[in-house]
Write a protein that binds this DNA or RNA. Structure first.
Lengths: 196, 196
DNA sequence: GTCTATACGCCGATAGAC
DNA sequence: GTCTATCGGCGTATAGAC
C-alpha cells in the first residue's frame, strides 16, 4: 500500500529484514538471534541491514512500533463497530485468537517477549495505546453498569490475563486443538468473571 | 537448615552466587547479566563461580530447579491442608500474592522469565510438577461438581492467567497498592469464572 | 577452595569498493 | 543501495598460582 514507487513489484529489503527478524525473534528470542542470523534469513548483506537500521535494537523497535500501531487501529475499529462492552470484549478475544492462528509471529512478539529487556527506553506494554484503549473500554463498561463494579485493574488482569495465557499455551504448542475450539469456553469464563 | 556443618555461621559462596544471580536475572534479565556482574554482586571471584557451577546456564538451572521444587512443596502442603477446591485455589492465590510481596525476585524469575530461551532443554513451565498439580486440583474440582463443567485448559488459563497478570503488573510497579489490597477482587473474579 | 590473569570466540558495527 | 572484509570489544570460560 505504501511502497508504491512505480510497479510495486520489487521486494523491499527493509520489509524482508523486518519479516526475518520477527520470525527469528519470536522463535529463538532477541538475544539468541544474531544480526548474521537475520542477514541469512532475509537473504541480504550486513551492509544492507545497517543501511536501513541503525543497529539491531532499531529493528526490534521498528517491529514493536508497527505492531502496536496496527493493534491500536484494530481496537479502534472494534470500538467503532460495536455498541456495548459485551460485543467489544468478545470481538477483542476473537481478534486476538484469530491473529494468533494467522500471524503467530506477531502475537508471539507481543505476548511473549519482554520488550523492556531489549528496548530499555520503551514503556511497559500495559502503558501502550492499545492497552490503554482496552482499559478505557472496560472502565466505560463498569461505569455504565454493564460490567460488575470492581477494580479496573483486576478487570483488566482477568480479561487480558486469561486471553494471553490461552495464547501463550497455543504458541507453546500445549493445546490439543486450535484456539477457536476454545473460544466459547474462554469467552464464557471471562464474561462470568466480569458481568454483574 | 541444610548447610549444618558445625556452627552454620559461614556464608556459603554457592548460596551467595545463587542469591546474586537471582537478583540480577530478575532485575535485568538473564542475557543482560554477565558472569562478571554476578561475581561483583556476590563478592566472589570468577574462579569461585566456576568452581561451583559448570557455566552461567547452570546457575540459572539451579535457581529454576530450586524454585520449582519449593513451589511444588508449598502446593502439596496446601492440597493436604485444605479439603475442597474453593479453599485450595484461594490458598494458592494467597500464597502467590504473598510470595510476590515477600520474595519478589523468586516470583519475577518464575512468572516473568522465558526459561526456554536460556534453558533450552527445559520443559515449559506449564509442564512442571507444581503446574501439573494445579491442573490436577482443578480437574478434581470439575469432576466433583465444585467447579463448572469446562475445558480444564481454559479453567487453568483463567486461574493462572489472571493471577500471573496481577503479579506481573505488581512487579512492573504498575499497581497503586500492594497486592493484598486487590486480593478480594481478584479472588471474586476468578471464582465467578470457575464456579458453577 | 579461592584467587588473578588471560585466552579466545562471537557478534555488533564500520570501512570502503562497486 | 548493496556488497565483502574486517575490526574492536565484550563476555564466557580456562589456566594455574596460592
Amino acid at each position: 500500500m505504501a511502497q508504491s514507487k512505480k510497479k510495486a513489484e520489487k521486494k523491499e529489503p527493509k520489509d524482508e529484514i523486518l519479516k526475518a527478524a520477527l520470525k527469528l525473534f519470536t522463535q529463538k528470542g532477541y538475544f539468541n538471534t544474531s544480526v548474521a542470523d537475520i542477514r541469512r534469513e532475509a537473504d541480504v548483506s550486513t551492509g544492507t541491514i545497517y543501511h536501513y537500521f541503525k543497529n539491531k535494537e532499531a529493528i526490534a523497535d521498528a517491529l514493536y512500533q508497527d505492531i502496536i500501531a496496527s493493534l491500536n487501529d484494530s481496537l479502534k475499529e472494534i470500538k467503532n463497530r460495536t455498541k456495548n462492552s459485551f460485543e467489544r470484549l468478545r470481538a477483542i478475544v476473537e481478534l486476538f485468537f484469530a491473529l494468533t492462528e494467522d500471524a503467530s509471529e506477531v502475537m508471539g512478539f507481543i505476548v511473549l517477549a519482554h520488550h523492556q529487556e531489549f528496548l530499555p527506553s520503551e514503556k511497559p506494554l500495559s502503558m501502550s495505546p492499545p492497552f490503554l484503549l482496552l482499559t478505557e473500554i472496560m472502565q466505560e463498561g463498569i461505569r455504565s453498569g454493564e460490567l460488575r463494579r470492581m477494580d479496573p485493574v483486576v478487570a483488566n488482569a482477568c480479561f487480558y490475563g486469561t486471553l494471553s495465557r490461552m495464547i501463550q499455551l497455543r504458541l507453546e504448542d500445549a493445546l490439543e486443538k486450535p484456539l477457536d475450539w476454545y473460544l466459547l469456553d474462554t469467552w464464557t469464563a471471562i464474561w462470568k468473571a466480569l458481568s454483574p
